[in-house]
Every structure is written in structure tokens, then in C-alpha cells.
Write a protein that binds this DNA or RNA. Sequence first.
RNA 1: CGGGCUAUAGCGCAGUCUGGUAGCGCGUCCGUCUGGGGGACGGAAGGUCGCAGGUUCAAGUCCUGCUAGCCCGACCA
Length: 443
Amino acid sequence: MRLTRYFLPVLKETPSEAQIVSHRLMLRAGMIKQASAGIYSWLPLGFKVLRKIENIVHDEQARAGHIPIQMPILQSADLWRESGRYDAFGEEMLRMQDRHGREMLYTPTAEELVTDIFRAHVGSYKDLPLTLYQIQWKFRDEVRPRFGVMRGREFYMKDGYNFDLTKDAALHAYNRHLVSYLRTYERMGLQAIPMRADSGAMGGDNTHEFLVLAETGESEVFYDAEITDLKFGDRAVDYDSVEQCQAVLEEFTSRYARTDETHDEALFAQVPEDRRRRARGIEVGQIFYFGTKYSEALGATVVTPDGSRVPVHMGSHGIGVSRLLGAIIEASHDERGIIWPEGVTPFHCGIVNLKQGDAAADAACDSLYKALTAKGLEPLYDDRTERAGAKFATMDLIGLPWRITVGPRGLDKGVVELTSRRTGDSEEMSPEAAVDRIAQIYS
RNA sequence: CGGGCUAUAGCGCAGUCUGGUAGCGCGUCCGUCUGGGGGACGGAAGGUCGCAGGUUCAAGUCCUGCUAGCCCGACCA
């Protein structure tokens, strides 16, 4: 993409509404624009990152064998009355009426709806196990939205629901999700620590939250320092293997790690003192096993091999897709701007032409652009007639992890400069070598 | 939902106390000089001063009501 043909409304000054760094940077980098309290439009750069994150989630869901569906944003109140949550959910649920006076609501989650789909179409143990998920806009009418997309009222979320014949099978689904989520977050360049959590309005007693450590996190967390050394890495886990998933769960949840909701000082005291950590975290996902709570309320049953009929065991699992942009920025930025992890960067690299209009520089940039594109990479070419400083400042702000700097001075020696946004390290090399290096980084 | 605050050009703000021709910086547009970290100079465009009513010869400024947004707290993916 050529910057002169893109829409990237960057701001030099910070809008006064933004308090925390991710919100400020998202506004300054032209990623979002507030539409009303806690509700945002996604501008091209922000939308691109949102899609990248969404794609990673879809990809990892597919790997775990989960099946994508799409359920409506507006739902009838009827099902929610059946489950008893219409009243239980309270003011957070945005309610409205259609022209006939029917009570409707903007979905805050979808246990009822997915269970309704299940009970209508699934009747036999032979159809199990089944995990359906969607990535869809949700709405929770927070009393006080803040922190940009980290705590908006409208938010984009992956919500998944597993249906299993037995409790053991459902617990395997729970473990499988934990493994799958570890992979998902690592691909985004994040370390998200599973912590024992509170089940809140979902019900059930088996639940973990995934937290990204960040000073601006909304939750206070307590953990054993050893846990941050754990890396999921590139291990090949068979998602169908009960033992393998169980082993990963045990590895990642055996050390002390809890949010303030479930924190237990006596247990925490058993962690060696030099490893006890108290910090803040951003919640980016949660997994639940809640058994037959919804299947019983809504009559979602299956016939077992012996011919009896039993309610299915269920769990639900969420990843805060839109919130992740804020979490990633909170975890990865400096005073000059965002630093995108390679896995979610909106463009693979930037090309900065230091002297737009100079025949040699223009030609070198064009040829770099073509070579990168030919390798399936997406560069952002700053072809504005701005001064070098302005171009560097924009690149630093929007956070592309790699920058190729092209100027007459270097071209005289036959080189361009490849710079890492994260480390600031620069290296001179031929344009061809720069293309190869970028391609290698993303291979 | 309790407490505090704000609303003036795309963004950041002054002007409101003490009523009298709506300003500054950044950004935008044009020109010249520049050209490896938000450069300089000259020119220009851009405003129902959140909305409605009131007081007054005259309201951005005073009064009343409303709306929207922000901060602290409680709450929350």
C-alpha cells in the first residue's frame, strides 16, 4: 500500500479523552474513532489489525476442530426468560423493542441461542462431541466505559460452546480450549497466563481467565514467578488426546496464579518468597465448564447408547478480540509509539523514501515494493513528499516491526537500511538482501 | 449509580470572573527555500462558540432547562 493512497489519519497531539497508552496510541495512529461512549469505528489500520487477530483465532479454532457459525446480534428475550438470565443479567443488557412491541436485546453472550440451535438439531450421542463458535459483536452496557477498546460497550469477541455426553468429555473440551488458547495468544506475540478465576454470571465452578501482564491492567494478580518462564512454543499437541491436553493444563496451571477475585493469602504464602509476584493484568479470555446448567434449563438432551436421554454437558469459552488490540499495545510500545508483534502487524514492513522525487530513490522504492509484494508480503510505502523526520515519526507511531529506509546517500553505495522497530538496530544491505531478510522473518 | 468536571476551527487550548468586531498552536491548502528524526518564511481556507429558552440596546461570556463526553469510586469480557 502506498501511503498517499491510503487513509491513515494520524494525530500529532493526543485527544483529551484518552487516558491510557493503548487508547492514546490507537487514536493517534488513526486506528479508531470514538462514535459514542464505549463505541468505536474502526479505521483502516485498526480494522486491519482486528482482522489479523480474528484470522489467528479462526485458524487456531480450526486446528482444535471447532466449527464456526454466526448468530444474530439482536435476539428475542424469550430464550433468555427460559434460562432465567433475562432478569439475572440486569442493567448491563441493552434491551429494546421492535415495532410490534416484542422485547429484544443486543447479545452480550450466546449460551441460550447456541443451546437452542443444539436442541433443535442434535439428538444423539453419535453427534457428539461438538464445539461451535462464532466471532461476533457483543454489547454490554457498562456503567462507565473507558480505556478505549479495552473496556468498550460494544466489543468483538470469539465465543465458543462445547457439547459433550459426559462430564469427563466436557472437561477434556475444557483442557483442549486451554491448550488452544495458549497457542492462539502466543501467535499474537502475547504471554497470556491462565489464572484461576471466578465464574460470575456464567455459573459453574471450573474456570480460568487468561491474563496479559501490564501495569495498566484492570485486575490485580498474584502469581509464582516461575510461570512466566513457561512457553508453549511450537509443540505439537494432539487435540484429541486426553492425556496430552491434560498434561499441558497441569503444566500451565499447577503453579499459583490467581486474580484478586480468587486470591488466597494462605496458599500464596506457600510459594517461595522470592518467587511471589503481585502485579496487574488485562483479561483477554476466559474458559468455563458449567455442566448442564443451560442444557437442563433449555431441554438440550441427547439419547445415550443405552437409549436413555440425558442433558448435555457444556462449557463456553471467550476471547476478547477487539480488546486484544489494546492489550497488545499495552504490552508492546515505547515513548514513540506502537511496536507490533510480527504475528499481528498491519503491514509486514514500511518503506521510507527519504527523497521523494529523486529518480534513483523513487525507482529503488518501487522495485522494493514490487519484490516484497511478489513474495506475498504487504509493505506500507511512505511515498509522501514529507521530510525524513516526519516519515520516521509516522512509522514509529504506527509500529510496523521493520522499516526499510531508502535514500540517495545509501543508494550511492548500493545499500538500503533495514531497521528493527523493537530494538532500533539498523543494518545496511543491498535491496535484494533486505527483501530476503523480511521474507525470512515472516516465513 | 454516588462524587467531580468539561463542551469555542480537524486536534490541543485561550477568551467566560468584569457582556461590546471569535483568537493562538498544531494540522490542512498554495508558494519559496529546504531535505537522514515531526524544518523555516510568506499567504489562504476553515466556526449556527453542544442544544433550547430567558435577561439585555448587545450573550461565547449572565440565568434556567436539556444533551453529550471525561475523571475518581462502586461494577465489569
